[in-house]
Amino acid sequence: MQLVLGLLLVGVHLVCAGTHSLRYFYTGVSGVRDLPELTVVGRVDDQQFMYFDSKIMKAVSKTEWIRQSEGEDYWDSQTQTDITYHRSFKNNIQVAKERFNQTTGVHTFQQMYGCDWDDQTGEINAFYQYGYDGEDFLSLDLKEMRWISPVQQGFITVQKWNNIGALLERDKRYFNTECIEWLQKYLEYGKSSLKKTVSPQVSLLQRSSSSSVSCHATGFYPKEVTISWMKNDQEHHEDVVLGELLPNEDRTFQKTSTIKVTPEEWKNNKFICVVQHQGETKRVNEIGTNPAPSPIGIIIGVVVAVLLLIVIGVAGYKVYQKKKGFKPVNASDDGSNSSDHTDPKA
């Protein structure tokens, strides 16, 4: 069990066309003075829309659409629930350290949850999990509505939480209805940007006649894209390396697939790069057919990705590395929106 329930093996980077997601990431870190003890990030699809940390002690908006759609009451509620979770985190990470027999060092405690909704089929999914020092600690089996843990140190908490019927009913109600309702509301708020579609620009690039050939797709949104190669009208997978998805400064994305081929092979065979995005297919077979992407755009994309790794890395780096973008909402009993999904003490 890799921090995601078996039925929900869908990271943010794997969300398909037509599927939208709501995610919250609570990352607590102990043993590092210069970082906030707790950081909270809320995301809808590929966009971060809210942020909180225990240094500023305030939930703030990160997109114009949430800023224009919700007022002070919303942000006051967000702030208070995150402050409450900060107090809970201090207890939970101390409990975890005691159970793992740890007294010093840097340790991380993460709470992650959210839901997916396919606006074409109506299918919904959800997940709720905890991690400690980059490893699975607790997760909620949403089919059986019971907490499970892959490690002995989590058994005490599992037994305790599974005996709280009101807690399980709250979670069931939240993930079956409230999470999806808030996701749909956020999608309506940000429909001009969240539901936009931008086609990729595709180029074949080569540094020299003897170097590898790269198929570079950039400027596309949403980020789900497939890049493949064909040789003489047949699928070709040999000596192909697919690069990481990277963000551009304008919130679009870029991705590269590189093929190792000799000048003679390229000359004597027909190689085609095929890029598929949102039902559209682009084929490129000539080096330099399209203008090369702006070096500044590539550099900024790399810098943004590196900064993301640094921020999440120090406060939960091991978990992020496992999930590569894996990536919550209201859980209050009265139905008001809040990022709080605080469970009883561990």
Rank of each mutant, 00 (worst) to 15 (best):
Q201W: 02
L183R: 03
L183V: 01
L204C: 10
H236A: 07
R251L: 09
K223F: 06
V225Y: 05
S192K: 13
S192N: 10
D239F: 11
E181I: 01
N268Y: 05
I180S: 09
S199A: 13
Y186L: 12
H216V: 09
Q234C: 09
T177V: 07
T226D: 07
T262E: 07
S214C: 11
N232L: 05
G219D: 07
I259M: 13
K260E: 15
N232G: 10
V198G: 01
S212K: 14
I180T: 15
C215S: 05
V241S: 09
Y189W: 14
E188M: 05
K270E: 10
S211T: 15
Q254S: 14
S212N: 15
L242N: 07
L242C: 04
H236M: 03
W266D: 05
K223L: 03
Y221I: 00
V213Y: 10
K255E: 07
S209Q: 11
K231L: 11
E178A: 07
Q234F: 10
W182Y: 12
R173V: 03
C179W: 02
T256R: 12
N268L: 08
K255D: 00
L204W: 05
S199N: 09
L245T: 08
T252Q: 07
D233G: 02
P200G: 06
Y174Q: 06
E238I: 02
T218V: 05
P222W: 01
V241L: 08
G243A: 08
H236V: 01
V225N: 11
L194V: 01
E244P: 00
E224C: 04
Q254G: 14
E169T: 12
R170A: 11
S212E: 12
W182S: 06
T197N: 04
K195G: 10
K172T: 04
E181N: 13
G190F: 09
L245D: 03
T252V: 02
T218K: 04
P263Y: 06
E235F: 05
S203D: 10
Q206G: 09
L246K: 14
D171I: 15
W182M: 04
G243Y: 04
F220T: 01
R207S: 13
E244G: 01
R170I: 02
R251F: 08
F175K: 03
C179A: 14
P222N: 06
R173M: 10
K196L: 06
E188D: 13
T258H: 07
Y189K: 03
S193M: 12
D250T: 02
K185I: 01
N248R: 15
E235Q: 10
S257G: 05
E224W: 03
K231S: 05
H237F: 09
S228F: 00
D239A: 13
P200T: 01
Y189D: 04
